[in-house]
């Protein structure tokens, strides 16, 4: 196992960043699994720097008004709505 193997606190920190609650069992299991997976990812260190010359071009369209979903349709899957808006939880 490498020196910077992931700790339970790091798993909790990353879960916090990703907005995913974990119970203690999940933290333990992920800590163990992440150590093995990240150790495997370490082999990317052996990859040489490579010239990346992707031939990519932006695809643009004219900025013109066009039909889109009706708001009723867009709101249809929302757990809660109010006055034609999505209703979210309190910000703080």
């Amino acid at each position: 196992m490498s020196d910077d193997a992931v700790s339970p606190d790091e798993v909790r920190h990353v879960a916090d960043l990703a907005r995913v609650d974990l119970d203690d069992d999940e933290v333990d299991r992920f800590t163990e699994q992440f150590a093995a997976i990240l150790e495997y990812f370490e082999t990317l260190d052996e990859v040489p720097e490579v010239d990346r010359d992707a031939e990519l071009a932006n695809v643009m369209r004219p900025d013109e008004e066009r039909a889109s979903l009706e708001s009723e349709e867009a709101l249809r899957n929302a757990p809660e709505t109010e006055d034609g808006y999505f209703k979210g939880p309190n910000v703080s």
Binding site: A15, D16, R19, V20, D21, G88, P89, N90, V91, S92
Partner: peptide, 8 residues
Amino acid sequence: GNWNETFA
């Protein structure tokens, strides 16, 4: 709770 808590 707040949005961070409910999203999580």
